[in-house]
Design a binder for these strands. Sequence first.
DNA 1: GGATCTTTACTTTTT
DNA 2: GTAAAGATCC
Length: 805
Amino acid sequence: MVNPAGPPARPFDDDPLFGDAVPAPGPKPGGIAARALGHGRQPVYLEGLNPEQRRAVETVEGPVLVLAGAGTGKTRVLTTRIAHIIASGLAQPYQILAVTFTNKAAREMKHRIAALIGGSAEGMNWLGTFHAIGTRILRRHAELAGLRSDFTILDTDDQLRLMKQIIQAENLDEKRWPARQLAQLIDGWKNRGLTPDKVPAGDGAGFANGRGQALYALYQARLKMLNATDFGDLLVEPIRIFRQHPDVLADYQRRFRYMLVDEYQDTNTAQYLWLRLLAQNNTNICCVGDDDQSIYGWRGAEVDNILRFERDFPGAVVIRLERNYRSTAPILAAASHLIAHNEGRLGKTLFTEARDPEAAPVTVASAWDSTEEARSIGDEIESLQRKGESLDQIAILMRASFQMREFEDRFVTLGLPYRVVGGPRFYERAEIRDALAYFRATVQPADDLAFERIVNTPRRGLGDATLQICHDFARARQMPLMAAAAHLVETDELKPKARTTLRALLQAFAHWRSLLDDKPHHEVAEIILDESGYTEMWKQDRSADAPGRLENLKELIRSMQDFESLAGFLEHIALVTDTENEAGQEAVTLMTLHAAKGLEFNTVFLPGWEEGLFPHQRALDEGGRSGLEEERRLAYVGLTRARRRAYVWFASNRRVHGLWQTTVPSRFLDELPEAHVEVRESGGAGGYGGYGASRFDRSDSFGSSYSTPGWERARERTREAGAGGRAGGRPLSGPAQRLRGGATIEGELVAKSVVENPSAFTKGGRVFHQKFGNGTVAAIDGNKLTVDFDKAGRKKVLDSFLERL
DNA sequence: GGATCTTTACTTTTT
DNA sequence: GTAAAGATCC
């Protein structure tokens, strides 16, 4: 749910479609219009829009596709368009359907609309993510999907456990047919909007000897029994309802006078079908997107949806937004030139009116290995910092998250504050999920998965044996686990000890449930965690992260207070997997390219442009040409995040699955326009395009400066650590701010020394290299050696490539 | 039930 | 190489 103030405690609120036809509270259209219309001239909200943007805002009737290139004011158009529709009295806020992919985007839209039309976006009940809106629809017509309206939404973890149970129940070898794989298969079907009966014959024949489809059906049946859905169902079930109940569909079609879709290039087939159904009789649909920024094909997004728009919606008006307000001319030129290598795009040419003679070209630089890459980028960031650039305006965007580690290590050493975006989420942590399972089982006694998760957490002697008996009993009688347990404690099927414990647990749940009637839910939540012994369990835990976990639990209770009820809170977190990242201190941002979409920074570093990593080998292997094109779009997204400076890096050596490998610079480098790119080459030799081994022969590639502020800081820190107690403490203003994003760096503040075995090689010693032959060691720097090869001359090589002679 | 050994993956990830 | 999850052993 997007709006924490409106949890589903009252799922059918102020909705004329199903209740009384009372218009949403709030200002009448005339009132808003009067305010927004300035003084009889054009409405204030239209001021400052360029002609294309204005056209996209004002063309409200009929299908419209807005192709919005990076940084062309997409969100502005979307929000202004909604404001315009409301202010002109064309529709009430609740008659507008506006869908986004992420909660963040929905939130931002809400804010911006409110700012535009003055007052609030109150009444925009249908602005939200596909999933939030799908949930809303499904709760209303739950009975048509074989559910009760208080159904639970399972997360991936629950899903997986459920599938595992099904695989076991079917006597399949879980090793041979892992639940993960089944989950992927079913996910794929759901992405395509396929219910078990619609799965094409032979689809997924590779799984469990063609039983995939049957397992899917079993899984769905099991979900219904648990009164639960998974994420996919939030789309697939409404589609099914729309198809099977034309009257229901017609109601929604009547209701949604205007429809808007954000990030259309990311829609999957199910989302597309959902939209098509709703737009059948009323084609006031406006999709905004950028085919060049489609980077989620791997999870079912169909770029084709956007490419096909004009065919799907005859008479569609296509509006291109190509005027970029974000980046300098060289950055745009580089990004445009790169993306032009893709075929099958709708084609846009970004331009800017900014004519900054100082604008820096895109820089391409190289490092010997990933460690040096991190070191050099760290140095560069410090130098920018000295010039007054805010760390908040600097980001390192990488292809894969494993690349982050090297940067983290380096920044910890430098004492450079950084922030990791993404990574393990708050609500996915074990302690949070355990706590939530307690709450779920309290609110929803039929939630078997929740109950199962915590019956024996903390350990109370209710192990597999007891649970198995409960399961058998429950299955035989088709009842939830807790109900089965309630029966069993009255019999002597369980061992006396287990029986007593189980009875006490069931009584505790009943007690907590009753407390909900007369105490605020967050207090009850705290009582649950205390009385169940869960808090105590972590207090007893001596491991390093136990205090953090307790802190997280406190945070969980705190955040519950913003909600009306426990059920409302649970719904919120089922749909929202992230909490706001508080800004905190200035820090460099580290994230994946995928996570960077929609963001912008003054300075962007793009490390790891090497074949195999970027474009990623697996994307090439599995996706072929289209895989490569998606990778290229990812590169395009990366470059276009930069406002003023973009630095592209590649390393000649990188550890892949534990082994050092020599890498080849990414083909994307060759696709950058020479005129707007500067190859940083201290050696001087070799022009653009020549990334041969020769470039690494320059002698200054290792020992960089040892007088940088970071190095000084690091040295001080080492001294402090040595003097004052344990070195594991968190630096006061230092890095390690993985805000909620993941584990705080416990442990070493100083990067591990690269010197593992300094005695293995000696200066002047004779060595052998596979490629360069025999040579004499001239210098040693950690695990990097300078060797004078008899035939190949002086080279810098990693010790792992050498053999002592 | 806990400790230790073994296996496995290892791109991207929202809802 | 590494980390987490699973399996096995005491």
